[in-house]
Amino acid sequence: MNEADRKRLLREMMFYRRFEDRCFEAYMERKIGGFLHLYSGQEAVATGVLEKARVNRGTDGDYVITGYRDHIHAIKTGAPPREVMAELYGKETGSSRGRGGSMHIFDPTVNFMGGYALVGQPFPLAAGLALACKHKSTDQIAICFLGDGANNQGTFHETMNMASIWDLPVLFVCENNQYAIGTRIDRSTAVTDQYKRMCAYNIEASQHDGMDIDVVMEAAEKAIDYVRGKRRPYFIEFMTYRFRGHSMSDAKGYRTREEEKEWEKRDPIRIFSARLIEEGVITPEDIKAMEKEIDDEIENDIVRFAEESPPPKVEDLTRYVLDDNPDPRWIGPLQK
């Protein structure tokens, strides 16, 4: 990877951190409602994996799907950040036209097939996207990002089994942040190393550091090559940590400040920026300038777009429940 790309990746992760921080602020100002789950701390995982995937290539790209902590996965897949922010603001210009909100970002123009609030529900949906890739004989794959908490759902076991017996080209990315909402993994899960669970399904699996984007990219590239080439599922686990609570209503009473401090030392942005400085790719001054540039972009372009966009029209309340332009041959009316 060349220096320009490495610099770009650092900027992307800084942008994602600032984007989420800005969501936090907008939430406190009550500009954003509902539930808000922020990705801060885990940036290296989505950024590193999707850097190695085929994303942002329209509908020829890989399919990406995830849970409710979905803003950054959507953006890295190619959803315009303005539309993601507008969605959080509940605006008609949002990714889901203001109908979904933070947990339900969709952008099928880049094959980002959604964020879902039901923990573990994306497992079968991802396998279904992979089934479609297989059926159409394309070399696309499906990539499913979920947390460790999702692995105690029935859909996890059912889907792994089917993905394996049917040779589905799907990459399951387990972002192990060690807490299922507020319950630590060893208190909820019999086998805490998640990749080990894959021996039950005959699926190749591995575990890696999720705080170092170089490690993430190297592991993800191999995993993606495997899925794309062998047309088989792969399960990749990244050890990571979310710096904020599960959602905005989380006081984090279930973990210690000491533990948080230990993980903050391994902040993926701090690790990667220190490395780039050491490599001479970037200077601290460059980073400062980048921060300012990002602030400007988020404030003057992205947030402004969200603020100034109109809300959905109330008269459109019942649009999108069913196909709004159905074919009368299938729907009716019934010929008397």
Partner: peptide, 18 residues
């Protein structure tokens, strides 16, 4: 397999991709 929730989900995922 006898996995109603997930094979239905797989069908739904496939339908999302055409």
């Amino acid at each position: 397999p006898i996995s109603e929730n997930s094979y239905t989900g797989i069908g739904i995922g496939a339908s999302m991709a055409g």
